[in-house]
């Protein structure tokens, strides 16, 4: 299987979208290489707004641009967009339902050795709690490109997570990203793994491994965490009874929280949440951190088997 950098997939997609949508403008807060917005800058210098290290101002400017009929796309790290500029996103953008696209790089622990200050394990929970906001976390380059276009076409505020590293290709040509719809990556009725973001690869590998042992584990990629696809959770609850969620985020309030809310409301499935267990993520390479946080393929398998046996 091939790998591809999600940042680059997104940046390339944005340049294509820039050709298609003349009113698309990009904003950057001094991270043009890291976010790869430099690609848009080179293609459309006149539609590129460098605001400096001022994320709050960036969100406000984006609001004003959206009010004038532009499609502003903001660039910065997930931690800064969701936390430093949280209230600007809520009040200046989401409250009047403005058409601003907040693409955030270095989501989850993908900033790795840069340190915990640069990790974002709270952003899904924060953004999910803001009315009018759509929250998207693509898992591979194909899903990233499709999600970028879907977010730009959608009329309203959207928060899109972009990992810093490379992601293994999982999506096949037949898979299609649609806002609010999960993608079924593997069939099976023994249990369900629901993933979001890049950990869909680990989820699929765990399922494939267990299939060799005769266990058929369904895998659903929740590319959109909000609005959540209640329908597939309902089916998984009824048909498989056990749901394991996996995400590069705190288990509090993220995908696990969202799935557990739906499952509890319908009262039909047991849910186990894998992710960062409500502590600040340690420092190291992203792969090291995922190991420490028990988010490897093997961890998923062990956890799932234990869970179903219990």
């Amino acid at each position: 299987m091939a790998k591809y950098s999600l940042r680059h997939a997104f940046a390339e997609a944005l340049v294509d979208l820039g050709k298609k949508y003349p009113n698309l403008v990009a904003l950057e807060a001094d991270l043009q290489d890291s976010t790869q917005s430099i690609q848009f800058m080179k293609a459309f210098p006149e539609r590129y707004i460098q605001v400096g290290i001022a994320e709050q101002n960036m969100m406000g400017i984006a609001a004003g641009l959206a009010l004038s009929g532009k499609i502003p796309v903001t660039h910065t790290f997930a931690c800064f967009a969701s936390m430093r500029a949280c209230e600007q996103v809520r009040t200046s953008i989401a409250y009047p339902k403005l058409n601003v696209k907040i693409f955030v790089s270095h989501c989850g622990v993908s900033a790795g050795t840069a340190g915990t200050s640069h990790h974002a394990i709270e952003d899904i929970a924060i953004m999910r709690a803001i009315p009018n906001m759509t929250v998207i976390a693509p898992g591979d380059a194909r899903e990233m490109r499709q999600a970028a276009e879907a977010a730009i076409r959608y009329d309203g505020p959207a928060y899109v997570r972009v990992g810093a590293g490379e992601a293994e290709d999982v999506y096949t040509e037949t898979h299609h990203f649609e806002i609010g719809k999960a993608t079924v990556l593997r069939d099976g009725n023994d249990a369900t793994i629901i993933s979001t973001g890049q950990l869909m690869y680990e989820a699929v590998c765990a399922s494939d491994e267990l299939r060799k042992q005769g266990k058929k584990i369904r895998v659903l990629q929740m590319g959109t965490v909000k609005p959540i696809d209640r329908e597939v959770i309902l089916e998984a609850a009824e048909e498989t009874g056990f749901i394991v969620t996996i995400e590069e985020h705190n288990v509090v309030g993220g995908l696990g929280g969202a799935v557990a809310e739906v499952a509890a409301e319908i009262g039909k499935a047991k849910v186990r949440r894998l992710g960062i267990q409500d502590r600040f993520s340690p420092v190291g390479t992203a792969a090291y951190i995922l190991g420490e946080e028990m988010l490897t393929i093997n961890d998923i398998i062990v956890s799932l088997l234990e869970f179903v046996k219990e």
Binding site: I49, G60, A66, L67, S68
Partner: peptide, 11 residues
């Protein structure tokens, strides 16, 4: 927050 919004309009 408003002055930033005004800047967006002006841009």
């Amino acid at each position: 927050q408003g002055l930033s919004i005004a800047i967006g309009y002006a841009l």
